[in-house]
Design a protein around this nucleic acid. Structure first.
Length: 498
RNA sequence: GGCCCUAUCGUCUAGUCCGGUCUAGGACACCAGGUUUUCAUCCUGGUAACCCGGGUUCGAAUCCCGGUGGGGUCACCA
């Protein structure tokens, strides 16, 4: 038998910004397709007009491309044509006639039937079942309609839907790539609506028809779909189609171990990007939630993920989306980044913090970022961290006092240091030279290192914690008036101590 | 509630199929120490888990049975 091409699809509904769970699903679908030299397809399930949000489609496409998960099909920049629906993304709302045709085929095969029940009757039925503590299920009322009655109602234009005719007392089983054999009794399945009264299909019809028509080999989706998979199996067999492979992913959970959802804020991929998480770090992090390579390696780029990925390494149990580890991973990526690259990514945040990028030499920014690189967890922190490079710091005198040192000693040290610095050539303000000269000077004058360097650093940065004084001076010295700025700040410190 | 899925440190997980090498390994977080003028980085060490109860076995995190916990799902939403 010829081996079937692996074709996976990401099939979100355009109801909002892409969230991290969707990103992970798309990632796995992408990885599995790439791994097998197959195709990754994007299809928008926009069959609920009420919930469709304008701009959601663009956000999904944009986010996918931002992360390098570019679809092979159903991507509307295919062929340079931006016409939606025509070249993609595949929009289900543009395929209504296809679903209708298939629904009719099912009716002809008696696998589905028209239902004319009003919302009111359905409501009463549900209430009654609830009162009797029975599971809510449609009672197949319209199945008993004669074909004459049906034709008549249809001709009169009575509102109607099409329902799946679920047989009774049947075992429906399927194999899931992560959960193994799953068996459900058909008695537990409701006569699901397939075609709504407005002519749109429900998810269950459209997903089966499209997955078949688009030759999807692996249906990779969230675990919340397991309960409705038997309905899909029923549909496949009614059409006489072979089912695809099902791969139900464990859920992403919040701290209270509930399904991660919008409404709790901060689950949209876009929010994470705005907070200064790097796409590559977020992708890496999300890849490790529900899947692991069975080695102790934890840092993977997209290419490495493709090489490592396989379905049998997927986990069964849901996992908590824990920010601590994301922060660490993000820091790792930040530290490994080339400095020009880091600068480029920091620019928007620096601008937001009010830094005039044009006003300073690029070399200055690169020196600063080199200092902050190992301290940064998120890009968004950069603004507040580097503020002292662009404006004289505000702080109180006690900050200048090293441990329990004497205030007068500190003052004297700063005075002496200031004089010493003035004797130095302003071109010699490099980290190495400064460090050597100042440390020698400290030794020669029998001073305590901490009583010189701490107040120096505090005077320069105004911060409890910061990079060291030599590094800060080294960076400041890039500016034409660097030496003056340094001396000015030391002077100000002396005034505070006076 | 019915149905389904699931169960190893606080969190992500390795080990479970093919019982012993598991006095359960790694990572994040946390704590302590080292380097150091502070912070960060880096290095060293530490606290911390097999859901419970039976059974099978010389021996069970691993196999069997029964509980319990957690989650998902039961729409003309996806």
């Amino acid at each position: 038998m010829e081996k079937q091409e692996v074709r996976t699809r990401f099939a979100p509904s355009p109801t909002g910004f892409l969230h991290v769970g969707g990103l992970r699903t798309a990632l796995y679908e992408f990885l599995w397709a790439r791994k097998n030299n197959g195709k990754f397809i994007l299809r928008l399930e926009d069959t609920d007009q009420e919930r469709t949000v304008p701009g959601a489609l663009e956000n999904i496409v944009q986010t996918l491309t931002d992360f390098g998960l570019t679809p092979d099909e159903g991507f509307y920049w295919d062929n340079g044509v931006k016409e939606r629906g025509e070249y993609g993304p595949y929009l289900q709302s543009k395929r209504l006639d296809i679903y209708k045709k298939h629904a009719e085929e099912l009716i002809a095969k008696k696998a589905a039937y028209y239902c004319f029940c009003t919302a009111q009757r359905l409501e009463e039925l549900r209430k009654q079942q609830q009162a009797e503590k029975l599971p809510p299920k449609y009672d197949k009322h319209c199945l008993s309609l004669s074909s004459e009655e049906v034709t008549q109602k249809l001709q009169k234009g009575e509102p109607h839907v099409v329902r799946l005719n679920v047989p009774s007392d049947k075992k429906i089983r399927f194999t899931d790539a992560v959960h193994g054999e799953i068996e459900v009794s058909s008695n537990d399945i409701d006569d699901q609506i397939l075609l709504k009264s407005n002519g749109f299909p429900t998810y269950h019809l459209s997903v089966v028809v499209d997955d078949y028509l688009m030759k999807i080999s692996h249906v990779i989706r969230g675990e919340e779909w397991i309960p409705s998979t038997p309905k899909h199996i029923l549909l496949y067999s009614a059409f006489g189609w072979e089912s695809p492979q099902f791969v139900h992913l464990p859920l992403l959970l919040n701290k209270s171990r509930k399904k991660l959802s919008k409404r709790e804020g901060a689950v949209a991929v876009r929010d994470f990007l705005e907070k200064g998480y790097l796409p590559e770090a977020l992708l890496n992090f999300v890849a490790l939630l529900g899947w692991n390579p069975k080695t102790s390696e934890e840092i993977f780029n997209l290419r490495e993920l493709v090489a490592q990925f396989s379905l049998d390494k997927l986990n069964k149990a849901g996992s908590v989306f824990d920010l601590d580890k994301l922060d660490w991973l993000n820091g790792m990526y930040l530290r490994r980044m080339k400095i020009e690259e880091l600068f480029a990514r920091c620019v928007p945040y620096l601008v937001k913090a009010g830094v005039n990028i044009e006003k300073y030499p690029k070399q200055f920014f690169e020196k600063i970022l080199l200092l902050e690189q190992e301290r940064l967890k998120k890009l968004s922190e950069v603004g507040e961290r580097v503020g002292y490079f662009f404006a004289d710091p505000q702080y109180d005198a006690p900050l200048l006092i090293w441990k329990n040192a004497d205030k007068q000693v500190i003052l004297k040290n700063l005075q002496a240091l200031s004089q010493f610095l003035q004797t130095l050539d302003s071109t010699g303000f490099s980290k190495e030279v400064l460090e050597r000269k100042i440390k020698d000077w400290i030794a020669q004058n029998n001073l305590k290192t901490g009583e010189v360097l701490w107040p120096l650093r505090a005077a320069l940065t105004g911060l409890e914690a910061s990079p060291g004084p030599f590094e800060v001076m080294d960076a400041l010295a890039v500016l034409p008036d660097g030496k003056e700025i340094i001396l000015k700040r030391i002077n100000k410190a002396m005034e505070l101590l006076f």
